[in-house]
């Protein structure tokens, strides 16, 4: 069906013209790793720092890439299925490139574009139909803390698991047994990223005895002081005021 014969054709119309969007589309992020044996101590520390209850985390993450002929450049989109909900909920997430330049070098967190959208259950089927292909999938199991401390900060502590069979989340096995991933993220805009980055950096200092957090891709390994710090936290039940 050639629609252009029936309707006035409007080429190259920017999608965002359809609807004026005013959304946060950047995030500040740092990552680190911690041994599973010290996760309980980290949880005690986070509980004391955040003053909120932890939320359980069980997210099936599906990474899709555009087929070979689709788009002027290859693109990648992530579909997140929250399995903790009674009715699994879906989110489509696009993570863009990191901010570059002298300003980016001087801050200790990675600032990148990020957009997410909650969707109904057909997201995976739709993207497959549009010509996207499964690149990889993983299951994150752990917990998160969401709180406000100079910025809206989320700390996620999770075990990263791979599926041996397609979408078989019940049979997932850890990618790095004995090691868990810690991620600290905070939404930002082009105007606020400097203050948000500063708030994230300040918060990360409190976690320094247990783990070192840095820009994604820059691995710093586990912290030598982690065992002693964990023992201290466990012995006094996390009662120390920081």
């Amino acid at each position: 069906m050639d629609l252009s014969k029936v309707l006035d054709c409007i080429n190259n119309t920017c999608i965002s013209c359809v609807m004026q969007l005013s959304i946060v589309d950047m995030e500040c992020v740092v990552q680190g790793i911690i041994e599973t044996q010290h996760v309980e101590a980290l949880e005690i520390l986070l509980q004391g720092l955040c003053g909120v209850q932890r939320e359980r985390l069980r997210i099936h993450e599906i990474c899709l890439k555009s087929g070979p002929h689709l788009g002027t450049v290859a693109s990648e989109v992530r579909l997140l299925c929250d399995l903790e909900q009674a009715e699994p909920s879906w989110t489509v997430k696009h993570v863009g490139g990191a901010m570059r330049g002298a300003g980016a070098e001087q801050i200790s967190v990675l600032v990148r574009s990020m957009v997410e959208s909650k969707t109904s259950k057909n997201a995976l089927r739709m993207f497959y139909t549009l010509g996207y292909k499964l690149d990889h999938e993983l299951l994150r199991v752990g917990f998160s803390f969401n709180f406000h401390r100079g910025a809206q900060i989320t700390v996620t502590v999770s075990s990263i698991n791979k599926m041996l069979k397609l979408h078989a989340t019940d049979e997932a096995v850890p990618v790095t047994p004995g090691i868990q991933m810690v991620e600290v993220t905070a939404p930002a805009t082009a105007e606020t990223y400097a203050e948000v980055a500063s708030a994230v950096s300040s918060f990360c200092e409190y976690l320094a005895p247990l783990l070192h957090l840095s820009k994604p891709g820059i691995s710093t390994g586990v912290v030598p002081t982690a065992a002693a710090a964990a023992a201290s936290l466990m012995s006094d039940g996390g009662g120390t005021n920081l």
Binding site: C9, I10, T13, I15, V18, S117, A123, M126, T129
Partner: peptide
């Protein structure tokens, strides 16, 4: 054709724009 309907937050438009895999042909 595939009988698919998807409801999403309006931020999905920004995602589609960033992906650059589909573009608007006709708007009504």
């Amino acid at each position: 054709g595939q009988k698919i309907v998807l409801e999403a937050d309006s931020s999905i438009l920004l995602i589609m724009e960033k992906l650059q895999s589909y573009k608007s042909k006709v708007a009504l």
